[in-house]
Design a protein around this nucleic acid. Sequence first.
DNA 1: GTCGGCACTTACCAAATGGTAGACAGATTC
DNA 2: GAATCTGTCTACCATTTGGTAAGTGCCGAC
Lengths: 200, 200
Amino acid sequence: MPTPGTSDRILDAALASFATRGYEATSLDATAKSLDLTKQSILYWFPSKDALLEAVIARSARDLSEALETALRGAGEGWARVEAVVRSVFRLAARQPELLGLLREVGRLGPPAATQMTLALGPLVARATAFLEAEMDAGTMRRHDPGLLLLAIYSTVIGMVTEVEVLRALGEEPTARSLVRRRADVLQLLRSALLVEPAG
Amino acid sequence: MPTPGTSDRILDAALASFATRGYEATSLDATAKSLDLTKQSILYWFPSKDALLEAVIARSARDLSEALETALRGAGEGWARVEAVVRSVFRLAARQPELLGLLREVGRLGPPAATQMTLALGPLVARATAFLEAEMDAGTMRRHDPGLLLLAIYSTVIGMVTEVEVLRALGEEPTARSLVRRRADVLQLLRSALLVEPAG
DNA sequence: GTCGGCACTTACCAAATGGTAGACAGATTC
DNA sequence: GAATCTGTCTACCATTTGGTAAGTGCCGAC
């Protein structure tokens, strides 16, 4: 494993800052300083701050897709697939929380950033929608609008994983250990909500 | 109803901008211009941008609490209370979407803004937690960690109402009419998830 | 050994930002 | 009618922002 190149290190730092501080609150100067570089070096690799965001989104969308595709590859059928996806998101929350933070941030930023992310994750969304529809047709999951159902699942999982302040407000310290409990709770909740037979 | 005072107009404009563009992306100059004022007039009423945010949060938390308290006042028992709260949030989404947008934004900003909002909404949260616990004790709702359950409900409802870009990504145009459908879907979903008997 | 390009720097810059100081107009008070 | 207070404005200011221009050191090709 070679030393990561400068452009990758820049992407890492930018991702972290965009995901936590937010896009506007991230300054090129500060990001550069954290890497022992000057702002102009960043602008050498990425012609503008917008372009940097674009690159961060592109790489993150790819990483995100890969993580989920991998989880789906050996996943089984029906409910097991939902569980596999949720588990892989929680794994991401532990190992690369910035990826999920960026997702949140991009949704807030709106177009064109959101459009780019949307396009990049489109195939995954289409697959998920089709899956839910098939399950509902087969009668194994309760009937809902698939899009809205997906949004509900998305919001719940992302919320459980990124809403640090709300967690604190509810008396749940967002530690790594608590993440496991949150995962268990989400899975149980989704099972009750989705499955036709509240099976055990 | 007298003409709203300048300080109220400033709070309105600031709330709208904080909720949509975000705090950092909101400039005092732009906000002032939208009100046919100068930045210095804003700084006359609120000594700094931080203080303005604080005032916006204080007023919004009050409005939010009032709306929910009102909804709860004539709400009935058990599931009807959940339904009353959800309905009132969707009503807010139609009439004052900025209030919910601010909630999102404040969560992202972290302390001290988040702390202030948390404190202001604390009583409401405590009430909700106690309610859920009582229902679970009574056996009418499935047992979960009340805090996490509340977070799940919060995330789902707020997501349905503020995640405009995600909605679009899922092929749901965020119109006023679709809001009604979303509300129906959320209620149905929550009922399946929460109630012990999937009652009809 | 020098030529060319790569990675990065120093030196700037115009625009925008939050904030200060002080003046000005119009009421209100005495 | 003078003094005061309120709300707003004009005039500044220091800092920070994203971005440009012009080097500089270095390494491999020839």
